[in-house]
Simulated assay, not measured.
Amino acid sequence: MNYTLHQLLVFQKVVETVSITKAAESLHLTQPAVSIQLKNFQDQFDIPLTEVIGRKIHITEFGQEIAVLAENIINQVQAIDSKTMAYKGQLTGRLKIAVVSTGKYVMPYFLGDFLNEHSGVELHMDVTNKSMVMKSLENNEVDFALVSILPKAVNLEYLDLLDNDLYLIGNTRSSLNEKMDPEEIFQEMPLIFREKGSGTRQTMERFIEGSKISIHKKMELTSNEAVKQAVLAGLGYSIMPIIGIKNELVAEQLRIISVKGLPITTKWRLVWLKGKKHLPLPLAYLEFLKKEKEKIASRFFGEVTAEKEILKKEA
Results as ranks from 00 to 15, higher is better:
S175C: 08
Q187I: 12
A251L: 00
I243N: 03
Q187H: 09
L254K: 03
I242K: 04
F186H: 10
Q253T: 03
K246Q: 13
S258H: 07
I213T: 15
I264Q: 07
Q202E: 13
G210S: 13
H216V: 05
K246M: 14
K246L: 11
G261A: 15
P263K: 07
G210T: 13
I242A: 07
E209G: 08
L254R: 02
E184H: 07
S174N: 13
S214Y: 10
I264H: 02
M180N: 14
P241C: 03
Q202H: 14
A230T: 05
Y237L: 09
K267S: 14
E183D: 15
L235W: 09
K246T: 11
T172H: 07
R255N: 05
M189V: 13
P263V: 00
T200A: 03
T266R: 13
E205V: 14
S238P: 10
I208E: 08
L254V: 01
S198T: 12
I257W: 05
P241G: 03
T200L: 02
L254H: 04
Y167I: 01
A230M: 05
S211A: 14
M219G: 09
K218V: 09
L221N: 06
I245A: 00
K179R: 10
E225V: 15
M204N: 04
L262W: 06
K267L: 11
Q202A: 12
P190L: 07
L232D: 03
F186K: 08
F193A: 05
V231A: 06
S174E: 10
L168H: 03
R255Q: 10
I239S: 01
G234C: 10
G261K: 10
I242G: 07
S174W: 09
N171T: 04
I213G: 07
T265G: 02
I257D: 13
E225I: 11
R173Q: 15
L235F: 09
R201L: 13
E178R: 01
K179G: 05
A226P: 13
Y167D: 12
L235G: 10
G210D: 13
M189S: 06
A251R: 01
F186I: 05
P263T: 05
I242E: 03
M219C: 09
A230R: 06
A226H: 13
G236C: 03
V227N: 02
N247F: 04
I213N: 12
E188I: 06
P182I: 14
L249T: 03
T203W: 10
T266Y: 07
K179Y: 12
T222E: 15
T203G: 10
I257P: 08
L235H: 12
L249V: 04
I185F: 07
L168W: 04
S198K: 08
